[in-house]
Nucleic acid binder design. Structure first.
Lengths: 136, 136
DNA sequence: ATAGCTGCAAATGCTTTGCAAGGCC
DNA sequence: GGCCTTGCAAAGCATTTGCAGCTAT
């Protein structure tokens, strides 16, 4: 597992106190390769791992990490928010049926002919979601 | 305004009884060019126009129209669902601040190099959302 | 010491549902 | 008449918030 100090420094670097809860969630999030989590989802995992954290704190933490640029929030389903530990530019496959979200490498989808942003606005981000169904 | 019978036929064509509420909502939706509405939004408009409809019926109707292929549901914000009267292939600008959704003509965004759908699945739809912020 | 965090429980906001009354065919 | 629809109010869910107690610095 990634050394304790690396996570600690990462939190300090973005100005977040390295509390027990944040350290534990950061490990779950960043020590297992790229992943997509929901709050509910991460909370359940924490419980299983024996980490005591309230659901409210999980929500707060996910949002703080997102604001700090450690996570990216993905909106594909009105029913729940997903958070992606992969903050590099890339897009997603979304399995509507199972709710599973899957990364597509950044180079593997090219968006071109993008019109200019309307006056007074700037493009913040382009999200491409490829929605999947079970095979026909 | 579009003749009454045209809306009537359109509803019948998809197997929905042309009730007073559905007729009125269909007019609001389809007689004013392409538009994006939320349930709340459409309900308020109906009230203003003097059409008595409950919010529950607006939700039901929007979903029925979507299933019937008269509308397309757009997910850009976890907080609310948008419905688009433009069912042709096209993408969207989304003003995060105001919640305004704007169509981009279908030809005006080209997505290429799309990887094949994972085994056992088929691509149902590709959604491109260009998120905007106020000018920097 | 003190500003920042956490947990709980209550509150919120959108959306859905149960069921009795009403409307279309 | 019979089945589909509607409306209301209540229920549901994911998420947020208020606030008292705890903790990192």
């Amino acid at each position: 597992m990634r050394p304790y100090s690396q996570i600690l420094d990462r939190l300090r670097a973005v100005g977040l106190r390295p509390t027990r809860q944040r350290m534990a969630l950061a490990r779950l999030l960043f020590d297992n390769g790229p992943r997509h989590v929901t709050a509910e989802n991460l909370h359940a995992e924490a419980m299983t791992e024996g980490v005591r954290v309230s659901l409210a704190t999980v929500y707060n933490t996910l949002h703080q990490f997102t604001e700090a640029g450690l996570l990216r929030e993905i909106t594909v389903d009105a029913a729940r928010s997903y958070f992606d530990t992969n903050i590099a530019e890339h897009h997603h496959f979304y399995h509507e049926k199972s709710g599973l979200l899957e990364d597509i490498a950044g180079e593997d989808v090219v968006v071109s002919d993008v019109p200019p942003a309307p006056p007074g606005t700037a493009i913040q981000r382009i999200d491409v979601v490829i929605r999947l169904t079970e095979e026909a």
